[in-house]
Amino acid sequence: MNYKLTIIFFLKVLHLSMGIDYDGWLNIKMEHSLNCENGKYCNRGTISIKSIRTGTSVIDQITFGRTHIDELKELAEMDGFYSIRTICTSADNKETEFLSSVKAQDFLNSGLSDVISAWVLPSGAVMAINFQVDNSSQALVLGSNNYKIHSNFYLRYVEQAPVPDTASYIQKLEREREAREKGELKDNRSFLAKYWMYIVPIAIFVMISGATNPEQAPQGAR
């Protein structure tokens, strides 16, 4: 048993689970724009995630035939895109749709290998799903009747930025204003801190006056 790999996997799972407030299943239906008889998109496969915390997934995809490859080659000749639509369904029965695309030529050059990433908030809501070509794969070898899609799926955690407590800050300002009006709030600032806005203009005026009207040097005795 490779203990090093086990420890790395445990740490990744721990990091993800600490950032996720919600756990539940997630199903991602994948559709693409190749060899579709009716409509623009047709079935490509599914990704099933049993637990958002662990990110464990099962990918089930169709096998490409010669018709799929021919359409990809036609798109590649036109410098076109291979489009994918994903429909996410979560445990709370919410459906979210995302669109993504990659260059058809790049997809062929990768040997039908892509990387699928789902970006999830701590609440469990899916914010985005995108497809990228796996550039480390080898080009597709033509001449077969069946071509398998090679996909790697990653569930990525999105950290939310802290939200400022605007309501509490406004209430604090209101309390300070009411206290000043009632005379309950004492101003313990120094003299300079209280009246600097009056002192600074006067000091600048004096400096400017001294620079424009220098005293003439006394004349020497004759």
Rank of each mutant, 00 (worst) to 15 (best):
T96R: 14
S136K: 15
E184W: 07
S90R: 14
M78L: 09
S90M: 08
L121C: 06
S190F: 02
G19A: 15
E77D: 13
P164E: 06
V115M: 09
R180P: 01
K186Q: 11
D21H: 09
D79H: 13
C88S: 11
K94P: 02
I199K: 03
R177I: 13
M197V: 11
I59Y: 01
Y169V: 13
T54K: 05
L142M: 11
G19S: 15
E159A: 14
R177S: 12
L34Y: 06
T54P: 01
R66L: 14
A217K: 13
P122K: 11
V126Q: 04
G24S: 04
S209G: 08
A203R: 03
V200K: 10
W196Y: 13
F107S: 05
R177A: 13
A193G: 07
G80I: 04
G183H: 00
C36N: 07
L16Y: 12
C88H: 06
P164A: 10
T67P: 01
T96Y: 05
R44Q: 14
K182D: 10
D106C: 03
N146P: 02
R44G: 04
E215D: 09
K172M: 09
I52D: 01
V58A: 04
R175N: 08
D134W: 02
K12E: 10
E176Q: 12
I84Q: 00
L11I: 15
H150I: 11
D134V: 01
S209H: 06
S209R: 11
K172E: 14
G55P: 05
S33Q: 05
H150F: 11
A118S: 08
M78K: 15
F205S: 12
Y41S: 00
